[in-house]
């Protein structure tokens, strides 16, 4: 068993505000790890630090059991909270560009674009300019751009925010499919019913991981019936101490 992502004792401060304090996190290959917590808990910062888009004040990060290099990014798909698309371009041009910088060219690129477009159900809208896309379509295109180079590790920051339940369900089917093929996925989310579908979840609150484990095991441990209640239970426990 290998560990695609390993972060140890990560600390991060923005000015005087502590965003992460002593966060350690290890992902196992082929799991979907849900990073959950209220907004402002530091989920996005943690993902960006793991990606190397932000520097941790202290701590160590390994990607694919190595110090991160540019090459690691070849096996890494990132989807940010913002859609991060070129709105002047068509959907096809967007995917084509992101495929090119990942080293895909020619026929392989073309067939891959059609493949991912189909996976997010945008294959009929490829010629449209992104500016004409609805919020949900942009979100899906953004996901498609993260999938394009068939990475082994996905970092998805709120991938399903603003999507209708039907599409959301389809995307989760896609995530499970990717997982079956051996990919590791780290996903941040607000939506609690998605949490149940993760292999493991980490509860992030005020810059700390307050609980970690399989959703069911956590619910049993804290004697609660939903993941939301775990937060309340943990806080109560903390108050008792």
């Amino acid at each position: 068993m290998s560990f695609p992502v390993k972060g140890e004792h990560l600390h991060k401060k923005f000015k005087n505000q502590i965003v992460l304090s002593d966060v350690s996190l290890t992902l196992q290959e082929g799991e979907i790890y849900g990073l959950i917590g209220p907004s402002g808990a530091g989920k996005t910062t943690l993902v960006r630090i793991l990606l190397g888009l932000e520097k941790a004040d202290s701590g160590k990060i390994e990607l694919f059991e190595q110090r991160p290099t540019l090459n690691a990014f070849r096996s890494l798909g990132y989807m940010a909270q913002s859609d991060a698309l070129y709105s002047e371009l068509s959907a096809y041009q967007n995917l084509s560009f992101f495929a090119s910088i990942q080293g895909l060219h020619g026929k392989a690129k073309k067939s891959r674009i059609l493949e991912v477009a189909k996976a997010v159900e945008l294959d009929k809208d490829l010629k449209k300019s992104v500016a004409q896309f609805s919020g949900g379509m942009k979100r899906r295109l953004s996901l498609a751009a993260a999938l394009i180079h068939q990475p082994r590790l996905y970092l998805l920051d709120e991938p399903t925010v603003g999507l209708d339940p039907l599409i959301r369900k389809k995307l989760w089917t896609l995530f499970h499919y990717l997982k079956e093929k051996g990919a590791t996925i780290i996903v941040t989310t607000h939506v609690m019913d998605e949490v149940a579908q993760c292999s493991r979840v980490g509860l992030l609150s005020e810059g700390k991981i307050i609980a970690e484990g399989a959703p069911k095991a956590l619910m049993q441990r804290y004697h609660v019936s939903s993941v939301e209640d775990i937060f309340i239970a943990v806080e109560k426990e903390g108050a008792k101490k």
Binding site: D83, F98, Q102
Partner: peptide, 14 residues
């Protein structure tokens, strides 16, 4: 601001 630069930086581009 749109985050595409982040996407570029999370790619193997130098």
């Amino acid at each position: 601001t749109t985050g595409t630069l982040d996407r570029l930086m999370a790619s193997p581009m130098k």
